[in-house]
Design a protein around this nucleic acid. Structure first.
Lengths: 189, 189
DNA sequence: GTCTATAGACAGATAGAC
DNA sequence: GTCTATCTGTCTATAGAC
């Protein structure tokens, strides 16, 4: 009686995300995932062609979840406050989902321009553009968006790695963020 | 006739670095490394207790090599030009040694405070402090050093991942760097 | 200090029955 | 769509001869 289906693609991803976040990327194997789901490993291949495909799906989820968080927290705020709030939310997300966050920048195969436009990564990027554009006045302000994201990602990674040592680097983010936001406001003139 | 020794610890690291840079981290196995060296994998364990230890040694090398590059390129320049030159050199290094660079922020076990003070990561950090302090006037300007390193690391990673897409993000680094360097100069007042 | 040989574990993925 | 069974490959690391 294999019917009805025990698994759905989303259920698998839910379990995979939990496993990833709690045990790390190496612990996320097809076997361990199957065990959590009470299923045989070979059954998973009906839903995801390979482990790599599954990881990419998790990466997309992370990008969209992060984007949602950023938009939520910034809603209704002034442009500057939105960028400050989003920065906090970004770092909070990276801190509370370190293993998932590490998947965010996974290498992808080449995409068609149509696929690219819909991709989760592109949507996240567009979110940054929108937040930044509201302050600088340029709706396609690539340069400032790059600078802003760069700062956030770099801080998230260096913090996680412990490279800063014990000396609390909190002030370092504030300084960098202030410098860049000031620069945006100056550009808006 | 096993004598004289075929291997030295440094020769092994040289070969490991080459293998890592050309083939990626996954391709760096004790077997593949031994093959390159014309030796059996088991022989490597006389020189490095485990693969993890070997990777940490590579990480230390990368930190010191990068530090040398930064100091070289900035020697004799004005404080601001030094920071600009070092930024370029940092990104060049990350671009030309992507797999090695990725090891830079490896997790470490806990160190004694003495070990920590001598560690390659700490030396690199001190290099940043020196470069930054020359411009801002504060020889222990943690905040600005964090902001500077954060920007460089974030840019290196996002560039490598392709997250920026085809739109050349060059200007984004310039904008962020200018903003932060201006902020340092203002602090020096 | 390097060798042979092997232990021991684990992984991704597939074939074919039901 | 899930199962059992298995293929095939990978790896780190150790024991003991020389």
């Amino acid at each position: 009686m294999p019917y009805p289906a025990k698994l759905t693609t989303d259920q698998i991803l839910d379990a995979a995300q939990t496993l990833l976040e709690t045990q790390g990327a190496e612990a996320l194997t097809m076997r361990s995932l199957a065990q959590v789901l009470g299923v045989q490993a070979s059954s998973l291949y009906r839903h995801h062609a390979s482990r790599d495909v599954l990881l990419l799906a998790l990466s997309d989820r992370a990008a969209l979840e992060l984007l949602d968080t950023l938009l939520d927290v910034s809603r209704g705020l002034s442009p500057r406050a939105a960028l400050e709030g989003a920065a906090q939310a970004y770092l909070d997300y990276a801190r509370s989902h370190p293993n998932l966050y590490a998947l965010l920048l996974l290498k992808r195969g080449p995409l068609s321009s149509d696929q690219l436009a819909r991709s989760a990564g592109k949507q996240l990027w567009n979110g940054f553009l929108r937040l930044v554009g509201a302050l600088s006045g340029d709706p396609d302000d690539t340069d400032h968006a790059v600078a802003y994201w760069t700062l956030l990602h770099g801080f998230a990674e260096l913090e996680r790695s412990g490279a800063f040592g014990a000396s609390g680097p909190r002030g370092g983010l504030d300084v960098g963020l202030t410098a860049i936001l000031d620069h945006m406001e100056a550009a808006a003139g």
